[in-house]
Computed example of a mutant assay.
Amino acid sequence: MADQQSEQGAKRERDPVTGLLEGDDGNQRCWWHGGLDDYQKYHDTEWGWPVDEDRRLFEKICLEGFQSGLSWLTILRKREGFRAAFANFEFEKVARFTEADVERCLNDSGIVRHRKKIESTINNAKRAIELKAEFGSLAAYFWSFEPSPENRPEKIDFETARTLGKTAESTALSKDLKKRGWSFVGPTTVYAFMQSMGMVNDHLEGCCCREPVEQARTDFTRPVPL
């Protein structure tokens, strides 16, 4: 998570040992939101909560691709612009985009104007249609790569969290997506997607969101292929 001091004042300081940061409400949270209001809201209400909605899954994996080389906060603050530019990430609609749509996006200051990433989103929409036809839903496909409990760290402390840039499961998912023609889906990008969509719970021990997220994952009904 990149430092955003230049974007919105000074960030709060995390505890150097636990990686936790205390908010105005007295709650301890993972450090990476830096106390920024919009970033903290994302941390509390989205990151790590399990998702089985195809549109949201497609949106997130595309936005993770756009993030490559940037910070997630940059993408988060442009998310509404991306939704407007890419038909709210309804992949059946995005798959029908033409070269005119590529040019329109390249002239849209509300998004990251990167031709290859724009073209990748259109390509991946076509591949998403194929995945849905094969598995019944994108959710059924993606959740089939959820790590088993025995392959997860026993404890997600600050030291462990900093080692989780990619995993065997994210590497396997990345490899399979690439085989199916997807692009901008490297293992690190895919692991960030898995973290955010709740396929793993990487909230730190002591974070006020860790237990609620874990309970949500326990209660979550995993989608299965049709």
Rank of each mutant, 00 (worst) to 15 (best):
A125E: 04
W72L: 03
E103L: 05
T189L: 00
V224C: 01
E103K: 13
V94K: 09
D157T: 06
P153Y: 09
F58V: 09
R180A: 07
R55L: 01
F91S: 13
K116Y: 00
C207F: 11
G81F: 03
G9T: 12
R180Q: 09
Q40Y: 06
E46N: 09
E159D: 12
K78Y: 01
L57R: 04
A161Q: 08
E7T: 13
T189A: 04
S6H: 14
P212V: 14
M194D: 08
T45G: 10
T221E: 12
C105E: 07
A172W: 02
R115L: 09
H114Q: 03
K116D: 09
G35K: 01
L138Q: 04
D101G: 02
Q195E: 15
A85Y: 04
M194Q: 14
W32R: 14
G81T: 01
T18A: 07
H33Q: 12
K175A: 05
V213W: 03
E92A: 13
E169Q: 15
D37P: 08
E90H: 14
K78Q: 04
P187C: 08
Q4I: 09
I122S: 07
L177H: 04
D3Q: 12
F91D: 11
A87T: 09
S137R: 01
E46A: 12
K179D: 01
G26T: 04
L20E: 07
L173R: 03
M199D: 08
F82V: 02
G19Q: 09
D219N: 12
N151R: 11
W47T: 12
L63E: 03
V51D: 07
S183G: 04
G81E: 00
W49Y: 15
E150I: 02
Q28C: 09
V224N: 08
A161W: 08
A100T: 08
F184S: 01
K78S: 00
S137C: 02
K41E: 15
F82K: 00
E130C: 00
K93C: 02
W72A: 10
G198I: 01
G110E: 15
A87P: 04
D38S: 06
V200L: 05
R113K: 10
V213E: 02
A133D: 11
C208S: 14
F184W: 13
F82H: 01
K166F: 09
D15W: 10
F86C: 11
L70E: 12
D37A: 15
R152L: 14
M194C: 05
P223G: 03
E130W: 00
K178A: 02
R210F: 12
N107C: 11
N27K: 11
E99I: 03
G198K: 03
S109T: 15
D38G: 06
F193Y: 14
A192D: 11
V102F: 03
R152S: 03
T171Y: 01
T188C: 05
Y39E: 04
I61M: 14
D44P: 11
N151F: 10
E80F: 00
Q195D: 07
F91H: 14
T171D: 10
K60W: 05
T167H: 03
M197K: 04
G181D: 11
D108R: 03
Y191L: 11
L204K: 12
G35F: 04
E46S: 10
F86I: 06
T74D: 00
I61F: 10
